[in-house]
């Protein structure tokens, strides 16, 4: 593995991301929604002249849950499949670089691009709150930054898996959107329904829920922003019993396992497909 090739290709990937219409739309949407939320937070803090983490600020978790995985999954899903479709991947492979270098650079480039979009959205929103309110509630965005980055990267890795097995960009995008719906909505609705219909122990429900990296993110965010696992009812108390102070790290661990597992799987699949 040559770090110079990886660096060169990462730079190219970043530059391509800046030219990518999808990426620009996501970054802009993320920024606009974050600033709108910042305005709402400032507005709600104005009611009684104090700020904090309340119903409005909780919307940040929803916002991130909505957009970051969409960004990660669809950008990831397009990544290899688009290059394959255009023939650029085969062309690059005929150069003195390895698939591993191309793969790593693509992942790094997109991960940096996503991180940039998130960082810009959060930092401008923080400054906006500062400007509007003089500081009340200003910390909310940045406190969620590390988890949001991790979520973006994890879903990017899952997107890469989709990309590694898809021939056409369109079908990869379709699968990406379905995966997004599944992870963000349908899985939860299913678990909620199941837990009402049949008796699932709080421990089992917790396990089934945090297997989903988006749910791990959500619960970790609640811990990070609110530091009260009791909000999560019986399953939250089980988490406290099982993991205690390590709960946050367990959830982060789930996301890291997904991130590394999906990245490796995507690489193995891409390798099998490209180099067979």
């Amino acid at each position: 593995m040559s770090s110079r090739s990886v660096l060169t290709l990462t730079q190219r990937e970043l530059l391509d991301a800046l030219r990518n219409r999808w990426f620009i739309v996501y970054a802009a949407a993320f920024l606009v929604l974050c600033i709108s939320l910042a305005a709402m937070i400032v507005n709600s803090a104005g009611y009684a002249g104090i700020s904090g983490f309340g119903r409005t600020a909780a919307g940040l978790i929803n916002l991130v849950l909505f957009l970051a995985p969409l960004m990660g999954l669809t950008l990831g899903a397009q990544s290899l499949s688009a290059e394959r479709e255009q023939g650029t991947l085969a062309y690059l492979l005929a150069q003195p670089v390895s698939l591993g270098e191309i793969f790593l650079a693509k992942f790094l480039g997109l991960a940096i691009a996503i991180a940039g979009a998130i960082a810009i959205g959060f930092s401008i929103s923080s400054l906006a709150i500062m400007y509007w309110s003089g500081g009340a509630g200003v910390g909310i965005f940045l406190r969620l930054l590390p988890l949001t980055l991790l979520l973006g990267w994890t879903t990017l890795a899952i997107g890469f898996v989709i990309s590694a097995v898809s021939d056409k960009t369109v079908s990869a995008l379709g699968i990406g959107v379905v995966a997004w719906l599944l992870l963000v909505l349908i899985g939860d609705l299913g678990l909620m329904g199941a837990s009402v219909a049949v008796s699932i122990s709080p421990g089992m429900l917790l396990t089934l829920t945090i297997v989903n990296p988006l749910e791990s993110f959500r619960i970790a965010s609640i811990l990070q922003l609110r530091n009260s696992i009791e909000l999560l009812g019986p399953s939250g108390l089980v988490a406290n019993d099982r993991f205690g102070d390590l709960t946050l790290w367990v959830l982060v661990g789930v996301m890291i396992v997904w991130l590394t597992g999906a990245t490796m799987l995507a690489y193995v699949l891409a390798r099998r497909r490209e180099l067979q």
Partner: peptide, 17 residues
């Protein structure tokens, strides 16, 4: 009515409901 559903607080599923 179903305390176990507190686990899904702030989820998009809950908002959707």
């Amino acid at each position: 009515t179903h305390p176990q559903l507190q686990l899904f607080r702030f989820s998009l599923a809950e908002r959707a409901i």
